[in-house]
Structures are given as structure tokens and as C-alpha cells.
Design a protein around this nucleic acid. Structure first.
Lengths: 153, 153
DNA sequence: CCATCAATTTAGACATATTCTAAATATAGA
DNA sequence: TCTATATTTAGAATATGTCTAAATTGATGG
């Protein structure tokens, strides 16, 4: 794996976005963190050592980064939006029980499976959101099953 | 297509959820409406004729219905959550330009494509979220294209 | 190095969305 | 009917997100 800082620099370069200290800190935190943080968590983390970003700046940067495709807002059960660095494509898994959002390796949909459903719409990207029991929750409740069986995928 | 009221009755029955007047009205509205309404829109619609549901009740019922799987919270770019009746499985399409959320016909993932990505996680369900230009927006900007081409799916 | 311009940041006020609370009401089952 | 539980309610309280106007920063050209 290449060094994170180099990867972030490349991402800013490719997106043609000024890597200001605050904006960089937001993306860096999202790239390092596993938790798909809320704006508030990002605010706290970025300012942990040294208060140097206001709330408005966190929101401003989340928007500019999202617009550039470097971060993604992920489906959040609660009310606060959760954000995810989007440096590499990936799918998501959300635990029904504990709500954790996990990244899954990317795989393409096989060619042709979605064409009919999409009709004539122009497609720019897609992601699959899986739900079920995460490994941690499954361990504590090994016999839990989906109410209706889901086809093997 | 069977009558909606019968379908709603069956859904409540299957979910073992009391079909109170207010709860029924929320699900009925979501099932009829195409707009993936916010809590506030549901509140306004349900009370249009006759004020008979408070905001708290709308939220309470959205939660109980979501927990039972009869409605789904769909990814909302803005801040107010949007809800969708989930009586039949379907995927979603979100327009990059106008933000509209459209339902797409369901299709299964081909067997085996996701197994490796899921690891040992227990799967209860999944959905695919596609993004791009809806038919209406495409019509007004026919030459728009994805910046990086997306594989045909 | 300086002047200039546009982008960014900031604090805090503001607006909106959601949850909570405690009392009232409705419903199912005995 | 009686009882226990679930649901509903209005409004207060909280959480989340946006806006504003002034200050700061960084890039560019002279």
C-alpha cells in the first residue's frame, strides 16, 4: 500500500481541489478511521490536539469533498449523516443489530444484469448496500437467521 | 394488481403490527406516493383533510414500520430523511442533478458474486443504489456523460 | 516583494429535523 | 367490564445543518 499522504495528495490533485489544512484533515481522518464518522465526530477528532477548524468548515469541506467524489455520505439509521472516504470504490454492509457500517471489497455487477431495470437512464456509478449481522454480532447470537431466507449471493 | 387496502392489511398482519389509523395512514401514503416523502411531507399529507396525527406519531410510526421492514429510509442528499414503502423489494436510482429518488424493478444478484466480499457475515437483505441522470434530466442535457465511463451493467 | 482577487475559514446566529416527556387515549385479551 | 399494554399527543428540549459577514489565506501577475 502506498503512503496515505501521497494518496491524499494525488486525490486532491485529481479532483482539482485545494488541499487546505482543514480540508486535508477532514479527508485524512475519514481515510484513517473505520467508523464512518458523523460531522460532529470529525469535528472532535480534527480539533483534538489543537482547535483549528470550526463546525462550519467541517460541513463546508464535507460538501466540497463529496461534490468532488472524495467522500460519500452513507446511509445512516440515526439522524446524523455519516461520511466515508471514497478513495477506492467499495460496497457497504450495515449491521441490523449494532448499526455498524462496514466497507466491503468492490466487485462489479455482471454485465447486463441491471440494464432492463435502468431503462434509458445514464449511469454514473452504483453501490450495493447489504444488511445483516456483522461478524461481532453473529458471534454473540450464532443462531439468528433472516426471517425469510435470502438467496445465496 | 390486488387492491392496495388488502395488501396493506396483509402487510400489517404479516409484520404483526397493529394497524392503527395513524400508522395505516402513514404506510398508505407512502405506498401511494412516488416521491419518497420526508416526515414533514407525510405529516402534511396525512393531515390534509382532517388533522389527526401529530408529528411525534409520524416519527413513531416511521420507526415502528421501518423496524418491521414495511418502510425503508432511503439515502437523502439533503438533511431530512426520506421514506419509502417497502412492500415489494426494489432497487433505487438517485439523480445526480435533480436528486429525485426512483424505484427500479428488483433483480437478484447472480449467485456467488458477493460471497467473497461478505466474508462470513449473515445476510438478511440488500439493495443496489444507482446514481446518474434520470430520464427527465437526461432529456434536457442529452450529451452529459459520466466523467469516467462505467461498465455496462 | 507587493497588490489583487477569489477561495476559504470563522463564530455565532439562525433554521430545521428529530427525540423526549408525561399525561391522555385506545386496544386486545382475560 | 377490567386490566395491562401500546399508542397518541402537544409542546419542550435537543441535535443537526445552514447562513452571514468579516477576517484570513493562497495563488497569480506585475
Amino acid at each position: 500500500m502506498s503512503k496515505l499522504s501521497a494518496e491524499l495528495d494525488r486525490a486532491f490533485e485529481a479532483a482539482d481541489l485545494r488541499p487546505t489544512a482543514q480540508r486535508y484533515a477532514v479527508l485524512e481522518y475519514l481515510a484513517k478511521s473505520e467508523i464512518h464518522a458523523t460531522a460532529d465526530e470529525i469535528f472532535a477528532a480534527v480539533n483534538f490536539n489543537d482547535p483549528r477548524a470550526s463546525r462550519a468548515t467541517i460541513y463546508n469541506n464535507l460538501r466540497s469533498l463529496a461534490k468532488a467524489g472524495l467522500v460519500r455520505e452513507v446511509s445512516s439509521e440515526g439522524k446524523a449523516a455519516r461520511y466515508d472516504a471514497n478513495l477506492h470504490p467499495h460496497h457497504h454492509f450495515i449491521c441490523d443489530k449494532c448499526g455498524v457500517v462496514e466497507d466491503l471489497c468492490w466487485f462489479d455487477l455482471p454485465e447486463g444484469v441491471a440494464g432492463a431495470a435502468l431503462g434509458g437512464r445514464r449511469l454514473s456509478n452504483y453501490e450495493i448496500v447489504f444488511r445483516g449481522g456483522c461478524l461481532r454480532c453473529r458471534k454473540s447470537h450464532p443462531i439468528t437467521r433472516a426471517r425469510r431466507p435470502v438467496q445465496n449471493v
